[in-house]
Design a protein around this nucleic acid. Structure first.
Lengths: 377, 377
DNA sequence: TGAACTTTGGCAACAGTGTTGCTTAAGTAT
DNA sequence: ATACTTAAGCAACACTGTTGCCAAAGTTCA
């Protein structure tokens, strides 16, 4: 049993460095057009050029990277450029929503959130688990058609609450059989692939993170509810019981109306009430106040908005939230925190679901902990 | 320039594993009374027993660990126990407050927060920097007397705001010369030792973390102001500009009184108003509501209270905050979040300041967790 | 009492990592 | 042409944790 911080060995060191190089190539833009040179990779990772050569040699043998011509000379021999091979490795992203199912295939060679074929079909999460499950598996299999052997895993994003570590759903719907349903392991077994399960807001913030690298970033989702996905110190933050991100149930009005959660004056309740009165500006203003609270507490450097309510009138929300933040957080030393829309709109969650698989593979994690592996790997 | 996640090499691997073992021995309690066996360390770190032998051999040569007898047999040869050597390495913890200066010497062999000689003297942070600085140096030198060569570094905790990365103070006091003062580098040069600078609340939460290992922990400080120190995923969270922890300026009453920060109805303003009216229960209740907001957002598993106001009536605060949390966060799946007092009381910040030095030394730092499976088919 | 078993932990050989020193390749500058 | 500069690979290397083996030091049981 490994408790606390784990020791590392040579294979771990190698995987880590491989992942560091892959991550750089996938999420950063190269200086030279068309690819990364060994010299550039070395400078940006702290690895020696020779080490980079060896790592790229390994990755080339695996078919993940390839040569991509030469760069301009900087006074001597021009650099040999390398790039990720398209079609070498994939991940499947699945967004299970209450009334929709979106499935897409993401190429490891593409930067996160790259346009791909995404298929959205009607869906009923309230249905019997077995029927819904069959639907998910059918769509996932169809998406993987022809590249089955190259798929690293399947990322699944659902409305919460759920348990990321155990891969189990909690009260997603009123259907009793869904409560405690081991969705991750069941899917892993039936698909024969590693599966990662997470909340939709967490997936969305990963999609954002791929778009713009930011160490501390919050995704605020205003739809049927109000939730958040948090990236802190460059990593998705889930909290002790996968429960982080309950942004909507912060009290902002001590004597406000009683909320279903038991508190009074929850931000979500006030926001939804404003929306019910078609007061978009009011809702956006409230969202801004909640965002200000969050920024004060966590010193975030980027806020991203999404969710059906936001996407219905995106400019208004961005403007109003930005206004509240710059009014309330004026600090000469502190740059204004940019407020943007979630890239890819409604598809962001499925993009991020694929990132649940790709980001650990190119960043860091423990062997076999990337999700639940199917029996006999 | 190393951007993003850094690559690692063999020396990094070694110091990581050394640190993993030191951290375990310093912060965990051993199964066998009196020390840690190689077998136990191996099991808890994931390292092989032979690797642990080599690591302990290195640490023994450096004089940091020593043999400590044998444990009971578990059916065969009894285990040889090892322990940290007292008096081998130290760190100095400095707590600079507005009217007090506390300095102590922490032994690497002691668990964090262990009673040590701590010296508290009157101090005036509002004075001229040079005079204050001389006072700090004088006290630090006196504390290190006789063990100078064994001190790993000096941790300095101040009231915020400040810049941890740059080691620079910001507006700690009205004295203009303090603003932007490079306290860390000046102290490092004059003392000839590495210096780490951080906010007092951050130091306090480190002291807590040493006492009880908790992955996600919040320290709430109610004194002249209201702030928080956050440990998230086992690491001190500072935010993008060392600004995280502004817990007091969350809006909890949209139409509340205007606060100096520009918002209305800040928790801090309401709390201090309650205290001004000698309404301790009211202040504690408000603190509880703020804590509930924080727990909802971050899914923390431990709340620790401190600060002069809390320490004046500790039981009341613990009881009232605990009551609010269990009332508002009742969730059958979620255990009750324990609310406790900061260990060591007023000395906690100085203890934590020493931890600013010791924790990185024993918890370094292969970037992120290591060992992912690279995308091999 | 003694033989068999179990567990610990060191030694030696090993596999595999990134590093270093040097050589070769392929440009630019003079 | 010639000299210089930069890139990238090869070979030897230093050092990591791993593996196989064995001695030491207990317990268990006939």
């Amino acid at each position: 049993m490994t408790i606390g911080i784990a020791g590392a060995n040579l294979p771990a060191l190698r995987s880590h460095n491989d992942a560091v190089v892959l991550d750089l190539m996938r999420t950063s833009s190269a200086i030279d057009e068309g690819g990364f040179s060994r010299v550039e990779i070395a400078a940006r990772t702290g690895l020696t050029p020779q080490a980079v050569s060896k790592i790229l040699g390994r990755l080339r043998e695996e078919g993940v990277v390839e040569e991509a011509g030469r760069g301009a000379s900087t006074g001597g021999k021009p650099r040999t450029l390398m790039r990720l091979v398209r079609g070498a490795r994939y991940a499947v992203g699945v967004h299970i929503d209450r009334d929709e199912l979106t499935v897409l295939l993401a190429d490891l060679a593409d930067p996160p959130g790259m346009p791909t074929v995404a298929r959205t079909v009607a869906f009923n999460l309230g249905a019997h688990p077995e029927a819904a499950l069959a639907r998910v598996i059918e769509e996932a299999r169809a998406t993987m058609l022809g590249v089955e052997g190259l798929v690293l895993g399947v990322g699944v994003a659902c409305p919460g609450p759920l348990d990321h570590k155990a891969g189990v759903l909690h009260r997603v719907t009123h259907h009793a059989e869904w409560d405690g349903f081991p969705l991750r392991d069941v899917l892993a077994q039936r698909l024969g692939l590693p599966v990662v399960l997470d909340k939709d807001t967490n997936a969305a913030v990963l999609a954002v993170l791929g778009d713009v690298r930011s160490a501390n970033c919050a995704y605020l989702h205003l739809g049927t509810g109000l939730g958040a996905g948090l990236v802190l110190d460059g990593t998705l933050y889930r909290g002790s019981r996968s429960g982080a991100g309950e942004f909507g149930h912060q009290v902002v009005q001590l004597d406000g109306p009683v909320c279903a959660c038991g508190s009074r004056g929850c931000l979500e309740a006030l926001c939804l009430a404003a929306l019910g009165a078609r007061d978009v500006v009011g809702a956006a203003h409230l969202l801004g106040i909640g965002a200000a609270n969050l920024l004060r507490l966590l010193d975030i450097d980027r806020v991203v908005l999404g969710g059906r309510a936001v996407l219905a009138e995106p400019e208004r929300y961005v403007r109003e939230v930005g206004a509240v933040l710059s009014e309330r957080l004026q600090d000469p030393a502190r740059d204004t925190v940019p407020v943007t829309l979630v890239p890819g709109g409604a598809r962001a969650v499925a993009d991020g679901a694929a990132e649940l698989v790709l980001a650990p593979a190119t960043r860091t994690s423990l062997p076999g902990r990337v999700g639940s592996s199917p029996p006999t790997a």
